[in-house]
Design a protein around this nucleic acid. Structure first.
Lengths: 220, 220
DNA sequence: ATCATTTTGTACTAGACAGTTAAAAGAGAA
DNA sequence: TTCTCTTTTAACTGTCTAGTACAAAATGAT
């Protein structure tokens, strides 16, 4: 009995961190599904392991909870992006891998995409109030800056490239693929969202961006 | 007095079409601003020239009104797109003009973009129920198909281009520019959304897509 | 003159919803 | 032991909100 008591796992009750995480997980899913005003506190509470009371105990009110969900979503995504290793690849290959990664990453995290969509509907007012912003913006931009520098040094990339622009292009193409799947397939059918269609889009995007950065005036 | 009575303008009261349009205009703005569940029927009614009662008289309920707003938004956009004339331009120039047009068009119609965002949050469920879909999907695709055919005939375009893919790329880049302005500028600053930044993005997008379609194995 | 369509206004309802209250007690640290 | 932090439960409040009821009248077409 006492051998398990001293470890972290042994906590049967009294797990404030676990409770908070559970609430966040449930609430994020709910907000991503229904939006801020479309989500119901009672519904969220019912789906947690704990009670509505705890939700207010830890997060104050609905908007407080929403903000934490938004921050947690960005944090989770950032963690995922940091795992990507591009060293040892040629600049072109590194760029292609980054694009493929982003594409898959967005496809595999539709709830994150939906949170961002919802936050944009609210003009990013909650994100602007968040204090955790400073660290979010960097990971990908830094990677891109490095790729561009290497590519320009070895002559394969053109000279007038801006990492922020490049990031914007990649984001736009990968984000839209998830965010607008609904209306796009309602209007044009879902051929682009079958495995085959998605494969074609992914290679198409890579090809397009590679062509964009390539220095055609050089020897390559 | 009677000289004006017979014309359409003379209607002082009794203008069902006008009332409907007024409601639609107000409601669209409201839905675009606050989403479906975030919008308030009383608020919409208060902003119209008429009363809440008429709103229910003509549109049945909130969702009925929302659907009509969505359809009207698409219809208005389609009308705008049909005005674009690309004849007489080289395939490359025609493509560039179509892209520039789409870019500006989206920038100038943020409420349409927001309606599409909102509808995507709802998994396009209302759009799927709409019967007006068949005519929406065509305008741009047809224009693109024509441009591609001409470009392939004169050798300036590569052979393996799909108009639907191309439309998807253009949409993604132009849509994201409006839809994600909020979160993007919260994270990375708003340098890309100044007049200068927007100009660079617009030309960047054109250049990227032109490079993508170009046939580099030919003489050009 | 008749009659269907359109318009106005107001008060109401039934339910939904965010947030609160109160009382109690278990857990673990000091 | 004592004290603070955490957890549970369930009823409750006040406001908001979509939608309705009721009553009446103006308009224009035939």
């Amino acid at each position: 009995m006492p051998d398990e008591k001293s470890t972290k796992k042994a906590k049967v009750k009294r797990d404030p961190e676990g409770v908070k995480q559970n609430i966040l997980r449930v609430a994020t899913k709910e907000f991503a599904q229904n939006g801020l005003s479309g989500s119901r506190i009672d519904e969220i509470a019912a789906k947690t392991k704990t009670s509505k009371r705890m939700l207010y105990y830890y997060f104050g009110d609905k908007i407080g909870l929403y903000k934490k969900c938004l921050e947690a979503s960005y944090a989770r995504i950032r963690r995922g992006e940091e795992e990507l290793d591009l060293d040892g690849l040629s600049p072109i290959d590194a760029l292609a891998k980054l694009i493929d990664f982003t594409f898959e990453h967005h496809v595999n995290n539709p709830d994150f995409i939906r949170m961002v969509m919802i936050e944009n509907i609210h003009d990013a007012n909650h994100l602007k109030q968040s204090s955790e912003l400073q660290s979010v913006n960097n990971t990908t931009i830094i990677k891109l800056k490095d790729i561009i520098q290497r590519g320009q040094k070895d002559g394969s990339f053109r000279d007038d490239l801006d990492p922020l622009h490049l990031h914007w292009y990649i984001s736009a193409l990968c984000f839209f693929n998830v965010s607008n799947q609904g209306t796009f397939s309602a209007l044009f059918g879902n051929s682009l969202f079958s495995p085959k269609g998605q494969g074609e889009l992914r290679t198409g995007i890579s090809e397009m961006l590679v062509r964009y950065v390539r220095n055609y005036e050089a020897n390559t």
